[in-house]
Amino acid sequence: MTDTANPPRPCWTDRLELGEGIRWFDGRLVLVDILAGRLLQAPDERNAAPEGALRELLRLPMPLGAVAPVSGRPGWWIAAAGTGVCLIRPDGGLDWLARPEDTRPLRTRMNDGVADPHGRFWAGSMAYDATEDAGSLYRVGPDGAVTRVLDGITVPNGPAFTADGTVMYLADSARGMIRRYAVDAASGAVGAVETFAVVDNPAAPDGMTVDRRGGLWVAVWGAGAVHHYREDGTLARIVPVPAVQPAGVCLGGPDRRTLFITSARTGLKDPGALDGAVFALRVDTPGLPAPSFRLAAPR
């Protein structure tokens, strides 16, 4: 089950504080350094060379959890940032859709997020000190309305969706748990939930992505590994990563068969040379296209 024959190789020279939200959009690899508020793009996704640095597309004066491009609007992004969700204009200006975490009694921030196959955007929130049950999951519809759909989560990560958008995987990292939810394709309503997998403490499931066969890749924070689960929840493969805190994953490259893995240096007393690096690993099953956010109403 543990695969040491084909180790992930480090890419580029950057060492990120908290690298997450990695996605393959329209032939380019983008990711965020959450606490630094940076959106980054890989300079050479085809070769994923160890030399060279990531290109900074923009920097916000607040944490930046994840982004997705806005369909039909070149240079626009929807972002889980600070205490809410905003649109980022090509000039770097922000149009806030909502800041629901402003009213929370604890100090909180947005975390990971993703667009689903139907063009909605989903993003989680968490307390800075990971207070139990303080996190939520939000859904952004095509009209730009931001709706809290789940609460009572401690550290939400993901979500990740199947190809038809009717199944959502969401990790509660602090509980070591990955849950699987039914999602109504037409409305985005969240339905029945079941426990998909549990990761033994102190390791924690973090960023996730679904491949074309319905398998789930998961970055396992604190374990120096990524896990691959079959659709039935069976753990099929463990790939060691030469960084303590893998944080995000995506399947990209021209054939979508390169697994890119982010990692983090934050919280480590003595970070190693590769902590905070981005890694690449070739896999057999390709990934799914990363959707854009479809904003119907002009803003």
Rank of each mutant, 00 (worst) to 15 (best):
N111T: 06
S187A: 05
N47T: 12
R212I: 12
T234Y: 01
G113C: 05
G191K: 12
W122G: 05
G93V: 03
A264L: 11
E17H: 03
A189N: 06
A277S: 15
G75L: 08
G144T: 03
L281T: 00
A171P: 04
A98Y: 01
G188I: 09
R120C: 14
P7L: 13
A130H: 13
R59D: 01
V199C: 02
A277P: 05
F293I: 11
A203I: 10
G75S: 05
A49S: 12
V193I: 08
R107K: 13
R212M: 15
W77Q: 07
T162A: 02
G82V: 05
F25R: 01
G165K: 04
P90V: 06
G21M: 00
S187W: 04
A80V: 02
W221D: 09
F161H: 07
P61N: 10
R99Y: 11
Q41M: 15
G119C: 08
T131R: 14
D200M: 06
R99D: 14
D129M: 05
D232T: 02
T4G: 08
T103R: 07
S187H: 09
E56V: 11
D44A: 05
V32S: 04
G21H: 00
Y138E: 04
W96I: 00
P286R: 07
H228D: 02
I238F: 00
R230S: 15
G84Y: 09
H228N: 03
R212L: 13
A53G: 05
A66V: 04
G287P: 00
M62F: 13
G124F: 09
M110T: 02
F279C: 11
T4Q: 12
L39K: 12
R237K: 10
L94K: 11
P246L: 12
D33H: 00
A219M: 05
I34F: 02
L60H: 05
D206A: 08
G82N: 07
L268Q: 11
F25E: 13
A290Q: 10
L274T: 14
D3N: 15
D151H: 08
A127N: 10
G124T: 04
G276D: 08
T4M: 06
V114D: 02
P291C: 12
W221G: 03
L281S: 06
R46V: 13
V140R: 01
R104D: 11
L295D: 07
A264Y: 00
D270Q: 12
R55C: 13
A48M: 12
A79P: 06
L35T: 09
I178W: 03
V210F: 04
R294P: 06
L94Y: 02
R180G: 04
L281V: 08
